[in-house]
């Protein structure tokens, strides 16, 4: 299977002389097409830093990152922006929807920016809105809809460009359990049916149990890696809790 993301010896150091803090020690990571991978770890372990570095929002201090065959280290600002727009999809904890745009406009924003023809845009928005069950609210503004609907809108925006990699940063962090489940199921379905590659950072074992593979990070290094394989979600959930307990960081 095709490798979507390859990170080699990625390091990230904050601070200057005398007061250096290593957020990422030495990360090696490979994500294959169609994977649904979870990143877990205690607070301060470097989850978000890793996500930011992999998503080109931040630059690593050392190491190589190759996404879909493209070396992203050393890309120019404009190239990076284009790369993010075309190759990556983002889902954030706080949704990051633009409140000046309707749900529909939020979803189609990446396409509009890439100057995709209007007819094509319409077709894609309709299809995705159906997948996420948000046809009814397309013309509403973000402050008129619930958190769950907002997150599904954000997820729709993330996948509308058919990105090679979807990056989710605590996507269920601000959702009630019902909306969270519904979103996670949608992501699972996307992964199963469209073979979308998803990388999700979370500290919630329940959310993580929807993944197929989970990396545990501690102190800037990959500590443990577990696979779901043929286990049921409940079994996998138990296993995650066990690992978290053994890591000692708690599941916070």
């Amino acid at each position: 299977m095709k490798t979507i993301l390859q990170a080699k010896n990625v390091q990230k150091v904050f601070g200057a002389k005398g007061n250096v803090y290593k957020a990422l020690e030495d990360i090696d990571l490979e994500i294959k097409e169609g994977e649904f991978i979870g990143i877990m770890g205690p607070s301060g372990a470097g989850k978000s830093t890793l996500l930011n570095v992999l998503s080109t929002i931040d630059t690593p201090s050392a190491g190589d990152i190759i996404i879909n065959g493209q070396q992203i280290i050393g890309m120019k600002e404009k190239q990076l922006a284009d790369f993010r727009r075309n190759q990556l999809g983002f889902i954030f904890q706080d949704y990051n929807l633009l409140d000046t745009l309707t749900v529909k406009e939020n979803i189609l924003l990446p396409l509009a920016l890439s100057k995709v023809p209007t007819s094509e845009i319409k077709k894609r928005v309709e299809k995705i809105a159906r997948t996420f069950g948000i046809n009814e609210i397309l013309d509403k503004y973000p402050y008129h809809i619930s958190g769950g609907q907002k997150q599904r809108t954000a997820a729709s925006r993330a996948i509308i460009t058919n990105p090679s990699l979807i990056l989710a940063d605590e996507p269920t962090g601000a959702l009630d359990s019902k909306s969270a489940t519904s979103l996670l199921e949608s992501l699972s379905m996307l992964n199963e049916q469209n073979h979308s590659t998803i990388m999700m950072v979370t500290h919630d074992a329940y959310a993580a149990s929807f993944c197929k593979r989970i990396l545990f990070i501690k102190d800037g290094m990959i500590d443990v890696e577990i696979h779901k394989l043929q286990q049921t979600r409940q079994e996998f959930y138990q296993k995650i809790l066990d690992v978290l307990a053994s890591l000692g960081g708690g599941n916070i």
Partner: peptide, 15 residues
């Protein structure tokens, strides 16, 4: 905040 979002979803500085 809005421009931060735009930056993340791939709007370059010139735009």
């Amino acid at each position: 905040g809005r421009y931060n979002i735009l930056h993340k979803i791939g709007v370059n500085k010139r735009e």
